[in-house]
Design a protein around this nucleic acid. Sequence first.
DNA 1: TATGCTATTTATAACCT
DNA 2: TAGGTTATAAATAGCAT
Lengths: 204, 204
Amino acid sequence: MVRGKIQIKKIENTTSRQVTFSKRRSGLFKKAHELSVLCDAQVAAIIFSQKGRLYDFASSDIQKTIKRYAEYKGEYFVAESHPTEQYVQGLKKEMVTMVEKIEMLEVHNQKLMGKSLAFCSLKELQEIATQIEKSLHIVRSRKAKLYEDEVEKLKAKGRELKDERVRLSGRVGEEPSGMPMPSGSKEKEDVETDLSIGFPKTRS
Amino acid sequence: MVRGKIQIKKIENTTSRQVTFSKRRSGLFKKAHELSVLCDAQVAAIIFSQKGRLYDFASSDIQKTIKRYAEYKGEYFVAESHPTEQYVQGLKKEMVTMVEKIEMLEVHNQKLMGKSLAFCSLKELQEIATQIEKSLHIVRSRKAKLYEDEVEKLKAKGRELKDERVRLSGRVGEEPSGMPMPSGSKEKEDVETDLSIGFPKTRS
DNA sequence: TATGCTATTTATAACCT
DNA sequence: TAGGTTATAAATAGCAT
C-alpha cells in the first residue's frame, strides 16, 4: 500500500533500500528489455550496487554494445583527440618516405665527402670526382669574387680616409701632423689597401 | 486511452514505434536515475536506436562506469581504430625532427656541390673549399687504387694467357700458328696489358 | 516530428508471511 | 533475505494537436 508519493532521495533505512534496489532493478531491466523488443533497439544497462556488486542487462551482446559505444564516441564526439587510423597510416607513410630521403642524402653526402667509397665502381668514382672538381671550381670562383669585393671595399674606404686627411690638414695648416703622404707612387693604393684591411676589425 | 495490454513484440508501424521509443526511452532513463538516487547505486544505460543513433544515461561519469565494468569483468573495450592524440603528437614531433634533418642535409649537400653559396661568408667558403679539396684527394686516391688493382688483375690474366699459349704451341709443334711472341722487350708487358684490358669486355 | 491528454496498464512502497 | 499482497503512484498506448 503506497501511502503517498515518495521523494527521490537516498533511502536511509538499509533494509528498505535493499528491497527497493532489488525490485526497481528488475523493473529497470524489464523496461529495458521491452524497449529493445518493441522498438528494435540495442539496449544495455550497467548497475553497481552500493556494495559494489555488478548487475547488468543487454538486449544483445553487452561487449559489442560497449564497443559500439566507444567507437561512436570516438568518431563523433571526441574526434579531435582521437585521430583516425587512416590519418596515422598517412603520417607513417610520409615518415617512411622521409627516412628514405634522409638515407639517400646521407649516402650522397658521404660520397661527396670522400667517405663510404668502398663499394663504388671506377665509373661512379669518376663521376664523383668530376662533381667534386666542378664544386671546387665554383667555390673557388665564389671565394675569389668575395675576396675581390672585399678588397675593392677597403680600397674605397682607404681613398675616403685619404680625402679626409687632406681636408683636415688644409684646415689646420700647410703641414699635416700625421704620417706623410706619398704621392704619384704606383704602390700607393696597395699600401693603403693593406692598411685598410686591418681597419674594420679594430673598429668593430 | 490504452485500449488493452500490448504484446511485447516489435511495433510494425514506424511512427508508433518511434513515438514509443522516445517515450519509453525517457521513462527508462528516469527510472535509472531514480534507482541511482534512491539506492545510492551507479547506473549507466546505453541505447542505440534502430537507426543507429546513440542515447545514453549515466548517474555519474559513463566512461568511469564502463571502465569499472571492464575491470570487474576483466575485459577491455578499447576502440582499436582510434590511436591516442599523445601517440600522434609523438609522431609529429619525430617528423619535425626529420624535416629539420633533411633541410640540414640538403643545405650541406648544396654547398658541397657548389650551390647556394650566395650567403656564405669568406670563412665558410674557405671551410667548404678545404672540405672539398680533402674529398677530392680521397676520391682520387681511391680511384687510383682501384685502377691499379684492375691493371694488376689484367696483368695476371695476361701472364696466364701467355703461359697457356706456350703450353699449346708445345703440343702442336715447334711453330706456333698464332701471332709471334716477342721476348725480352721492355714494352712487352704494357702491350699485353693493353690487349688484356679489352678482353673481359668482349668475353662477358 | 514532438507534445499533450487520459483511460488504462504497470510498477512499486509498505506491509505481510 | 526472499516472495506475495495491495493500494496507490507512475508509465504509457492511442489519439489529437
